[in-house]
Design a protein around this nucleic acid. Structure first.
Length: 416
DNA sequence: TCTGGGGTCCTAGGACCC
DNA sequence: TCTGGGGTCCTAGGACCC
């Protein structure tokens, strides 16, 4: 049986920023969400100040007082760094599951241990400049937990092999680790477990399986079983086809006018259709959601409208028409909106749908796709889209974005 | 003043059937 | 007056993940 390894990058977005601006490592650094709304990543100095996920406006003063820096999310940069990161890891594994932008599960031969893990970690650091944590175990859940320990306890130096821990060490770690640190145990479930007297991972493991099943339903039982070495989650080497595709953005300011909502929606439709085309899927369902701010007076109430299609489609104009109709259905005049969302559902591979049961792309759409493929996704767009309207000040703000060092000729790093 | 975006999975409960 | 029981399917919404 092979071993499972979880490698993830520490403070990924913040680390990407520091790769190209090493001086930032000495100062508190936070990376903000879209619209510079909340903190989504922080480097070690910032964490020492207690900075973590929370609204930016609340920590602005504190950050300034300590000479800190805030950056807007630079997804172009992070996505490119992520691609390099996963590709490097793939060289060292017989199989790889890219689990998130900064995490991979790897299958490696039995017999490799912490020493191997340290070499891997060194190489990632050397080649990409990214600090990582490595967790090794019999199952994904155990690898996750080992990775948690690797990050949390300095003496492990970023690498833990759960199988190689001395029994006494393992016992102490299990007794010190809160259940909420387990994969799949969120806020609500951990509250329930606490109420039942289960505070630590050791507490959970002290119960028999049927009791665990009662306490928390199937997923918790699986986690419990995986911690004893039974595999319930396989390393998924093939990316799974999406079941739904979403595009959603918050606005930089409250929006009341239907025309502005429509323009934003058209932008999101184009984006979500590009995802659909990339995966060669067709959509059987279209849904639109719009809502105001939870914190504002006179804000629109969250509302969904959706429509099932008689025949699945990949036609951007048809989807846009439908989405606009749905938006009109749920629009609340006079109320202010903070976000609009489009979701495509009932997806299936386009080649599995019998010809004639869905509309083939029109000549116009084929031309659109050809131009976008050649000159980039922004090269050609629909007239309804708001992206290029000069007055579209509702668009997402990213006022503190770093250069796209690795993907844009005009923004290459300069050495002097 | 300012509070993200993109997903999956599970469960409860309603509708419907015999 | 009395008003079953069991099954399936679908949907909405919650919980959780990064």
């Amino acid at each position: 049986m092979s071993r499972i390894v979880l490698v993830d990058a520490n403070n990924f977005y913040a680390s990407c920023e520091m790769v190209f601006e090493p001086a930032l490592a000495q100062r508190p650094l936070v990376v903000l969400s879209n619209n510079d709304g909340i903190v989504v990543a922080a480097n070690e100095p910032a964490k020492r100040l207690g900075l973590k996920a929370q609204p930016f406006f609340r920590i602005r003063q504190l950050l300034r007082r300590h000479g800190g820096v805030a950056r807007s999310s630079n997804y172009t940069l992070y996505a490119d760094m992520s691609r390099r990161f996963h590709r490097l890891l793939a060289r060292h594994a017989s199989a790889q599951e890219i689990y998130s932008i900064d995490e991979s599960f790897l299958l490696v031969p039995e017999g490799l241990g912490a020493e191997w893990g340290r070499c891997l970690s060194d190489q990632v650091r050397q080649w990409l400049g990214l600090p990582v944590a490595v967790g090794m175990g019999r199952t994904k859940t155990e690898a996750k937990l080992a990775n948690y320990w690797a990050k949390r306890y300095r003496l492990f130096d970023g690498v833990v092999d759960a199988a190689a821990l001395a029994e006494a060490v393992r016992t102490v770690l299990l007794a010190q680790t809160p259940v909420s640190a387990l994969w799949g145990v969120g806020r609500r479930l951990s509250r329930r477990l606490q109420a039942a007297g289960v505070h630590t991972v050791a507490d959970l493991l002290s119960h028999p399986g049927d009791v665990v099943r009662q306490l928390g339903h199937l997923p918790l039982w699986r986690v419990w079983a995986e911690l004893q070495g039974q595999r319930h989650y396989a390393v998924q080497t093939q990316p799974q086809a999406s079941q739904t595709l979403v595009c959603s953005r918050s606005f930089a300011r409250p929006v009341t006018a239907l025309a502005e909502l429509e323009a934003a929606l058209a932008d999101y439709v184009m984006t979500v259709m590009q995802k659909l085309w990339r995966q060669q899927l067709v959509a059987g369902e279209v849904a639109v959601f719009a809502a105001g701010s939870r914190f504002a007076q006179g804000a629109a109430v969250p509302a969904w409208a959706q429509h099932k299609l008689m025949t699945p489609t990949e036609d951007v104009v048809a989807v846009l028409k439908l989405a606009r109709r749905l938006l009109h259905q749920l629009y609340q005049p006079g109320r202010s909106y903070r976000k609009v969302l489009i979701r495509l559902g009932a997806l299936q591979p386009r080649h599995q749908v019998p010809a004639g049961l869905f509309s083939r792309p029109s000549r116009a759409q084929q031309a659109l796709q050809a131009v976008q493929a050649r000159f980039g996704p922004q090269a050609l767009f629909l007239g309804r889209q708001g992206a290029l309207q000069p007055q579209a000040d509702w668009q997402m703000a990213r006022n503190r974005r770093s250069p796209r060092y690795t993907t844009c000729w005009a923004e290459l790093p300069q050495v002097s």
